[in-house]
Write a protein that binds this DNA or RNA. Structure first.
Lengths: 200, 200
DNA sequence: AATTGGTTTGACCAAATGGTCAGCAAAAGT
DNA sequence: ACTTTTGCTGACCATTTGGTCAAACCAATT
């Protein structure tokens, strides 16, 4: 766990901001340097290349995500509350946009995942958690792959396209904020209901 | 309704392909020319600039999308079948990726929508259709903005991240194809059920 | 055969972009 | 005080990229 200097943090924050908004190919090193308030040469002094900078952000984000996903291991809470809590945390994490950024890049270049594939498969924990409940008779029969994809879609897409949804629905800022604030619970309610009812 | 020459069609297809995969900034004119089997100079002969080429694709895709959305006007079918049919059509349209591409670009540059905003608001038709049913007492009370966003998310995100989902769930090609084939009905079932039950 | 109009391209250009480097400034040792 | 290490930058470089253009090509028309 190597600690970062202030300059490195400042640069990484700036880089995240620019990468997330412009994508990898759209991001400009000069723009990142400006955002961090340093020269382009300094930027290269700290992170040799654009690709290197990207890798740092990629690994950092992936690591944070894995940590979030790992919460599906401990079995203390009731599954309903566990799911609701996870959705809230997942939603907060998505709002930082960094996960959506790297998922977009993986989409363009799947090798990013294949080459760095850690042993951890994010789906395994979620799906096996609910499949276990199901086999124990505590849940109606459902295709847990569907539940997994539903949850991801319902959480990620509205964050990804928040601006677009606000425009196309014509909501004003206040209404939209209220909407987004309640949204995680709305998703949780739907999924809990679907799991109780059974889903295929 | 101006007809396109073979060359123009060939170029537009190639451009869509490259734009959809690489994004606007990532797409290279040379790459598009190669994909169309012509020289870069020829590409510029037909479509003066990269931006011009993008605008053509943008407008064409938006137009197709508006046509799809307009089906919420005629009131012949029962709402359940209407919704199910729409989801199937929407899903097929999404699979061409062109809509997802332009939505992504709008996300990066909202002016794209603001400047070309046609009077037609895509949300209006969907939402007012179901709000009318609701007021007529044929549906439990629901926040139709939620339903609208749920439908979009459930349809779009799995198409956008199909490759990623296949990898992270570890499904093989065959299983995944079957899954995707059944998926639109799964979404339809969920939304119909939610609408019957009421959703907030 | 010659002319005309549209089509195609290799060669080229200017600007943008990722990256390097010698050198300066400011701490940090000694 | 001096040397050394570290942080930082302006100027510069090589390559990429969108875009241009004169010349060649090719069918249809005269």
């Amino acid at each position: 766990m190597l600690s970062l200097t202030d300059s490195e943090k400042k640069i990484l924050d700036a880089a995240k901001k620019v990468f997330e908004k412009q994508g990898y190919t759209g991001a400009r090193m000069q723009h990142i340097a400006d955002e961090a308030g340093i020269s382009k040469a300094s930027l290269h002094y700290y992170f040799r290349s654009k690709e290197n900078l990207f890798e740092r952000i990629f690994d950092e984000t992936m690591s944070d995500f894995m940590e979030l996903v790992s919460t599906w291991s401990d079995e203390k809470e009731h599954w309903e509350e566990k799911l609701r809590n996870f959705i809230h945390q997942f939603f907060d994490f998505l709002k930082t946009k960094s996960l959506l950024f790297i998922l977009g890049e993986i989409n363009r270049n799947p090798d990013l995942l294949l080459s760095r594939r850690k042993k951890s498969k994010p789906k395994a924990k979620f799906i096996s958690y609910f499949e276990n409940l199901q086999e124990a008779g505590k849940l109606k029969s459902s295709n847990m792959y569907v539940v997994y994809i539903f949850m991801h879609s319902l959480c990620a897409y509205p964050v990804l396209n928040a601006g677009l949804f606000q425009m196309t629905t014509g909501m004003n800022n206040h209404d939209f904020e209220v909407f987004m604030k309640n949204y995680p619970d709305t998703v949780a309610d739907l999924l809990i209901n679907a799991l109780k009812r059974g889903l295929n």
